[in-house]
Design a binder for these strands. Structure first.
Lengths: 216, 216, 216, 216
DNA sequence: ACTGTCGGGACCACCCGTTTGT
DNA sequence: ACAAACGGGTGGTCCCGACAGT
């Protein structure tokens, strides 16, 4: 129910602060996302979130009726943001294997630079601790990869005995594991680099002899 | 009255009466480990742990003065248990690459069947939420893999341009990610299978042309 | 909804709504002071304090993040309240010995009628049980008395061989001991009377022959 | 060292450890008394007491069914120990005023060197925190002083308008206050000195003109 | 008789998500 | 949008007791 709000506000002047209200809401979501990313759902307490941005609990509650609503908003927002990433590369033109790699790079970059993306994936994985219906993590990503790999297989770009779903899961698991295993949470700069290295190791065994692309 | 200690009360001479106490302590550690594995450090509350095994907070306090002591015990116990796993395969005899794969299988099996191992790795990764000095996760595992890969490289069993440390990190990240990403925490039965599939995908690109082993 | 604040909600312009809040805070401090006075720091449990004034633990936590904060507030408040008592009588005009007696009477009256004063002195003395930097008890009182006695000595109002500091300590020790030794904590009505009796016994031996004042 | 336990031990040999048992009991009482003296009844926890003397809670519980029993034992032991102090000086021979002073010195010395005495007085004063029937503090001391002062008055050794009970209370209050007010609990070495100084200040105003004794 | 192991249960300070009035 | 207050926990502490060894 917090979502709706007609943003058209439009002059009036009666609600002079609703302009800054959206910004405030944004700041709340961002601060909460940083917390969720680093300490998880249970590790975040709302007092710290609002203290960090100079607000009070009342202000937070004005925008989000509860803590779970905050989590839901972050996850939903992330799902929406990832739709283009996982879908746009699925064009029939071009090598589907290149699309697979490209999607991986985009996801890695997103996780690397966007605390919201990291928070959303973490919240998805911790969703059994949150009393709300949250989507599983990486579902659409795995689906997109599977489709592309299947396509590549039918085109003969990868070995016939490759399991698309299994391979997709390998990729996703590696990516998530790499992000979470980092000893220093701030040192996630190398995620894209590591993903590239991963592909460099994996691709040769996917491709049948003779195939070649700009990767590796 | 607890459960039925199956142990035959062997008179080893070591603390005769502590037999039942040790069993109790074991039950506490096990229950706590299951909780930490599934819900993380913050997601576990001690009341539930002791309720589950029919004890009281007082009993728990007798064995573990605090929650962090429980976590530390679990992590230390796991570190000790993994030493043989990560070290014994490093014999000079045999293909080091086989040793790498074998270690991975053992680790995977350990994570698959042993809640303590899962709890310990999770606690290590969450160690910034726990005020105690906890070792980083998988440190020794990565070290062992790196050494073996370096050895394999010097023996010419893998490509000359393979980065041992980077590859080791890939393996570990994949393994951890696979374990954590599972939608159903109980359905971790497939971990070993997935790891095998992972190796099947990765090994061909590591080996130089002509090399062959019983794997793949 | 708590009780009925009797205060007439004067629109002084200073923090309009904090009117009731200040009153609540006052009630908390007062109830806590009564507890500390009668049962000491460890003898007070916060639940009883808030129950007594019809509040909840949350309300207390809003004003005082911890029990020690409550103690610190009480001690600080008392220190501030005693400054005029121990300093205002130090005027050059008049007999310094009269000032000494007068200060003693005021302190006694304060301890007799003000639970906060009693609580503060008790907390100061128990300060090694409280993890906070608390001032020692009666420090300023002893200092003021010493100064006055020194002055009286230099004026020849008391014997030349009187030790100002030692005498000041005697007075203070007597006063504190009398307050604490009372079998019935409620029957502290006689403190001023006892202090007067004390002075009646002590003064004659302080004064050199021939000196006289309105006391005794 | 307190009273005089019959040390003759009872040959037999059937209870070989009862020798050390009494010593153990003594050590418990002593350690507890030190704790009660410094931190009060509530400030002492039995675990620390037994840890300090290398025992376990079970051992303590064997000797003292509960914490209050420990306190009661200490208070009773002290009461017995003080009987000679407060009574022996009441002989008709000699100046009763000297006896008053002498009693004060003995009490002061006892409080100064004997943690058990300090603990007992403190426990007596805190007796409303302890669910047990404990005697009030200093009762017999005040009674003895009152009697002596009354005698001195009837003998004309002190002013006719001196109130024996009131003066006794002054002395006791001063003594207790001095002991408790010390900033450093270990620095109670000066108690006897301070008491002497107190008498030096007080005695001249008690004695009628012309009286004299070895004091002051 | 004396001592230690193991465990019970109540309580406490503190924390924190939430809500109301303004 | 904030100040004020709620209330249900949570981890931790501690006094105590039941036995089991010596």
């Amino acid at each position: 129910m917090p979502v709706g709000r007609p943003v058209e506000v439009r002059r009036t002047g009666v609600t002079p602060r609703s302009q800054g209200a959206q910004a405030t809401r944004e700041r709340i979501v961002h601060a909460a996302a940083c917390g969720f990313d680093q300490r998880g759902y249970l590790g975040v307490n709302l007092k710290d979130v609002v203290d960090e941005i100079g607000l009070t609990k009342g202000a937070l509650y004005y925008f989000f009726p509860s803590k779970v609503d905050l989590a839901v908003e972050i996850v939903n927002r992330h799902s929406a943001a990832w739709v283009p990433i996982t879908s746009q590369a699925c064009t029939p033109s071009g090598d589907p294997l290149d699309a697979v790699v490209e999607i991986g790079r985009r996801v890695a970059r997103s996780l690397q630079i966007d605390p919201m993306a990291r928070a959303a994936t973490r919240l998805s994985i911790e969703r059994h601790l949150i009393q709300a219906e949250l989507p599983g993590p990486f579902d659409d990503w795995i689906a997109a990869l599977s489709r592309l790999l299947q396509l590549a297989k039918s085109l003969g770009h990868i070995h016939a005995d490759i399991d698309p779903i299994g391979t997709a899961e390998i990729v996703v698991a590696f990516c998530y594991g790499t992000q979470r295993i980092s000893p220093d949470p701030e040192d996630q700069a190398g995620l894209v680099v590591k993903v590239d290295r991963f592909w460099a190791s994996l691709l040769p065994s996917l491709r049948p002899p003779g195939a070649r692309s700009e990767w590796v």
